[in-house]
Design a protein around this nucleic acid. Structure first.
Lengths: 209, 209
DNA sequence: ACCCGAACCTGAACTCAGTACAGAGTTTTA
DNA sequence: TAAAACTCTGTACTGAGTTCAGGTTCGGGT
């Protein structure tokens, strides 16, 4: 919905020094999120309604939707502080590396940033296939930013190549997520992601099998 | 929804010789689909409700949902005959080629199979970003079959590689779709798809830019 | 300290996707 | 031609997502 506007409201800015308002908002965001994750991991995604989450978080249904665009978003969205770190990462990324190498680095940094959330998230995927189906992309929340970053450093005429590189990096990342067992260590996931990115970057054509 | 069962009902079987029942069903399927595409291309995806489609197609809302799992599905699903051709393609695919080459071939054959529908579909994407967002994958309808095909010809222990190859092929295909202008010839699209698959297969790491 | 505007929260009412089901109608089969 | 199997339809329901008109709370001046 909402056409393709990026952010309806500049929600949860996370500036340097937070006023009372901003602190409350961040707190509300986190209460809703953690409540949601708790309920969903207890009962499964489908068995929890937005109403349940809102009630349990002590907030109205309407407010829930002012913090999260959809029910899935409460699972996928980055914490405002993570989002800020992610944007700093993008801002600081070197501009001289070849695109694929730069992207590989970014994706791996991102993975580390998500270290806390990913295991739980992956477990939710396994419990609730409907979650997997709907948003098949864990990339939803950071994807747009990354797209923009790629676009900015892409010379005219090379859009196809840039898009291909980006989509392939996503594919590699998602493949690693799919393959990972959340009971294994997170380092193991990082290895998987590295492997996938390396294989995809090195060319899938000539290869085993 | 529906756990992860493949097909709730074996709808529209398209056997060799069709009985009256099957003929009616195929006809109904096509009426609904074409009505839907017409209305949606006239008014936009969001401005058309399932009720509108059903009414215009002379069928009940309930019946609509017995033919299509969702409102998006009516745009994405393969025609039962296309689906059959696609399955034959899979069945006939050689088992001795390396995985990437085999997949490349399959994806390109698939593209040709979709020649009629793709231009309109791409135009709908452009008109209705909400369509793009929701099902970011044109691969939805044939993806499961292809996954299964890949799984069958994957030796144990190589699942990661197989998944990576598959996801990357999808990524390349989607990239081509994204990049294609539906006012250009369909051959141009095929060239794009070929290029994307070749680039991804050949290794994105060392490359221009 | 006070006030005003802006930002925020809320309940209520609404639209629409998707599901369940029971009954009526149609095709198939024997 | 009658029973069995399948299909369609209306009805009624759940729940996601939106809109909106208040009420409340915060922040920045003065």
């Amino acid at each position: 919905m909402t056409g393709s506007g990026r952010e309806k409201t500049p929600y949860c800015p996370v500036g340097r020094v937070l006023g009372l308002r901003e602190r409350k908002k961040l707190e509300a965001w986190r209460t809703i999120r953690s409540t949601a994750l708790r309920l969903i991991s207890e009962r499964g995604f489908d068995a929890v309604s937005v109403e349940d989450i809102a009630a349990e978080a002590g907030v109205s249904r309407t407010t829930f939707f002012s913090y999260f665009r959809s029910k899935e978003a409460v699972v996928y969205d980055l914490d405002p502080q993570e989002l800020q770190q992610w944007r700093e990462l993008l801002a600081d990324a070197p501009g001289d590396e070849p695109l694929w190498e730069a992207l590989t680095g970014l994706v791996l940094s991102l993975a580390e940033l998500l270290a806390d959330r990913l295991p739980l998230q992956k477990r939710l995927f396994q419990q609730s296939p409907e979650l997997c189906d709907s948003s098949r992309d864990v990339c939803d929340s950071f994807g747009p930013d990354l797209r923009e970053w790629v676009a900015r450093r892409t010379p005219d005429g090379d859009e196809l190549h840039a898009a291909l590189v980006l989509n392939t990096a996503f594919a590699a990342f998602n493949t690693a997520i799919e393959a990972w067992d959340p009971d294994d260590s997170f380092d193991h996931f990082l290895d998987l992601a590295r492997d996938c990115l390396r294989l995809a970057g090195g060319g899938l054509a000539r290869s085993v099998s």
